[in-house]
Lab assay of single mutants.
Amino acid sequence: MSIQHFRVALIPFFAAFCLPVFAHPETLVKVKDAEDQLGARVGYIELDLNSGKILESFRPEERFPMMSTFKVLLCGAVLSRVDAGQEQLGRRIHYSQNDLVEYSPVTEKHLTDGMTVRELCSAAITMSDNTAANLLLTTIGGPKELTAFLHNMGDHVTRLDRWEPELNEAIPNDERDTTMPAAMATTLRKLLTGELLTLASRQQLIDWMEADKVAGPLLRSALPAGWFIADKSGASERGSRGIIAALGPDGKPSRIVVIYTTGSQATMDERNRQIAEIGASLIKHW
């Protein structure tokens, strides 16, 4: 067993022997300050990975656009099909120029040879490739089937209704393509630590998230040396920005953090900075 597999395998073990964890309200002060700075709603939740206990939250049951954070859930659904023998990570999918949508930095380079399901999930999570996400959605039956998968997991909140890039419209009070911080955190925890996926698939999912290449300005920018993070960011219209992450010190994840914001007129750089500052406060008061 590799060191990485050993780390994931021990998560349920540590759950039975973990020391108590305590929240620090200073982080919530920073979350509220971020709302003021951005002139927008901010949703935040911090969940103990082992016990599932909510350590701190702000607007945990308000809806926010999922943006590209849905791609982790999508690849979780794909992996569940792999575990059930209904899909193969090595299966090659061919597509055409007509399938390409905006922001497809990986898939646009493989029009001649296609990409495997594994490569598409990697592109969707690590590079947030939109065409990769659409091709993967097709393999499971579309957005409604992803919503059904989540319902079967016990998540009756999170929903995907449209494809890339339309799902990023982020219209106020529109429940399409939205989640709540509490629902997303719970669902992510189930995918990473529960029995829904095999150990190999849980490890694959967290490996893809750990290799995320487009979330550098967010929580990763505040991460001390030696800390672990596996994450997925998202951005969409109407000043929306978000990130879902499993992180912790000593090279292993111990908490789930979900941050969403929407309705801001601030620049992308400012939205990134506010999320990074929330992360810095979280780490300082860990």
Rank of each mutant, 00 (worst) to 15 (best):
S2I: 14
I3S: 06
H5D: 07
H5E: 07
R7Q: 14
V8E: 10
L10S: 00
I11M: 11
I11P: 05
I11R: 04
P12Q: 12
P12A: 13
F14V: 11
A15T: 15
A15Q: 11
A16P: 08
F17G: 10
F17W: 09
F17L: 10
C18W: 12
L19H: 15
L19S: 14
L19G: 15
L19R: 12
P20S: 12
P20A: 05
F22C: 11
F22S: 12
H24A: 07
P25Q: 09
P25A: 04
P25E: 08
T27S: 03
T27Q: 01
V31L: 12
V31M: 02
K32V: 09
E35R: 00
D36E: 15
Q37R: 13
R41L: 10
R41Q: 08
Y44W: 01
E46K: 03
L47A: 08
L47V: 14
D48H: 03
L49G: 01
N50S: 14
S51R: 04
G52R: 01
K53A: 15
K53Y: 10
I54M: 06
L55C: 04
L55R: 05
S57H: 08
S57Q: 13
S57D: 05
F58C: 05
R59A: 01
P60F: 03
P60H: 12
R63Q: 04
R63G: 01
P65K: 04
M66V: 09
M66C: 04
T69R: 00
T69G: 00
T69H: 01
K71R: 00
V72A: 05
L73C: 05
L73E: 00
L74R: 01
V78I: 12
L79M: 11
L79P: 00
L79G: 00
S80T: 11
S80M: 11
R81W: 04
R81S: 10
R81I: 03
R81M: 07
V82F: 05
V82M: 03
V82S: 06
D83Q: 06
D83E: 08
D83A: 02
A84T: 15
G85K: 12
Q86I: 13
E87Q: 05
E87R: 00
Q88F: 14
Q88L: 13
L89S: 04
L89H: 03
L89D: 02
G90E: 14
G90D: 13
R91W: 02
R91T: 05
R92G: 04
R92E: 07
H94R: 12
H94N: 13
S96Y: 12
Q97E: 14
N98G: 14
D99K: 09
V101S: 07
E102A: 14
E102S: 15
Y103R: 02
T107S: 13
E108K: 07
E108A: 13
K109R: 14
H110S: 09
H110Y: 06
H110A: 06
L111E: 05
T112Q: 01
D113P: 05
R118D: 09
C121L: 03
A123G: 05
A124V: 04
A124R: 00
T126C: 11
T126G: 10
T126R: 03
M127G: 03
S128R: 00
N130D: 03
T131A: 10
A132V: 00
L136I: 06
L137E: 01
L137K: 00
T138D: 14
T138S: 15
T139L: 07
G141A: 03
K144A: 14
E145P: 05
E145C: 07
L146C: 01
T147A: 03
T147H: 03
T147E: 05
A148R: 15
A148E: 15
F149L: 07
L150F: 11
L150M: 08
H151L: 13
H151S: 14
H151Q: 13
N152V: 13
N152G: 13
M153L: 13
G154A: 03
G154D: 04
D155E: 00
H156R: 11
T158G: 15
R159S: 05
W163M: 09
E164G: 00
P165D: 02
E166A: 12
E166R: 06
N168H: 04
N168M: 03
E169Y: 08
E169A: 12
E169G: 08
E169P: 05
A170E: 12
A170T: 11
P172A: 10
N173I: 08
N173S: 13
N173V: 07
D174I: 01
E175D: 12
E175N: 12
E175K: 09
E175Q: 12
R176N: 05
R176V: 04
T178H: 00
P181V: 03
P181A: 03
A183I: 06
A183T: 08
A183Q: 12
T186L: 12
T186D: 14
T186K: 15
T186M: 15
T187D: 11
L188A: 03
R189Y: 14
K190L: 11
L192V: 07
L192Y: 05
G194H: 08
G194I: 03
G194W: 05
E195K: 12
L196E: 09
L197A: 01
T198P: 03
L199P: 15
L199G: 15
A200E: 14
A200G: 15
A200L: 08
R202V: 07
R202D: 01
Q203G: 07
Q203T: 15
Q203V: 13
Q204R: 10
Q204K: 11
Q204T: 14
I206Q: 11
I206R: 12
D207S: 15
W208Q: 01
W208L: 03
E210Q: 12
D212K: 03
K213L: 12
K213N: 08
V214Y: 03
A215V: 01
G216A: 10
G216R: 05
P217T: 07
L218I: 02
L219A: 01
R220V: 01
S221W: 05
S221N: 09
S221L: 06
S221Y: 06
A222G: 06
A222E: 12
A222V: 12
L223H: 00
A225F: 09
A225Y: 11
A225G: 12
G226C: 04
W227S: 00
W227L: 04
F228I: 03
F228G: 00
F228V: 03
F228L: 02
I229D: 00
D231S: 03
D231Y: 02
S233G: 11
A235G: 10
S236V: 15
E237K: 15
R238I: 10
R238G: 13
R238H: 14
G239S: 05
G239A: 02
G239C: 03
S240R: 01
S240H: 15
S240E: 07
S240C: 11
R241I: 04
R241H: 04
R241F: 04
G242D: 02
G242S: 05
I243Y: 04
I244T: 02
I244C: 03
I244P: 00
I244H: 00
I244Y: 00
A245S: 05
A246Y: 08
L247T: 14
L247A: 11
L247I: 14
G248W: 05
D250T: 06
D250W: 07
G251L: 07
G251M: 11
K252H: 10
K252S: 11
K252V: 13
P253I: 06
P253D: 02
S254T: 11
S254N: 09
S254D: 12
S254I: 06
V257I: 12
I259L: 11
T261A: 08
T261S: 11
T262K: 10
T262M: 08
G263I: 07
G263A: 13
Q265T: 15
A266C: 11
A266E: 06
A266H: 06
T267H: 10
M268K: 06
D269F: 09
D269M: 11
R271L: 14
R273G: 10
Q274R: 09
I275L: 08
A276E: 08
A276D: 07
E277G: 09
G279C: 07
A280T: 09
S281T: 14
I283S: 01
K284D: 05
K284M: 13
H285C: 08
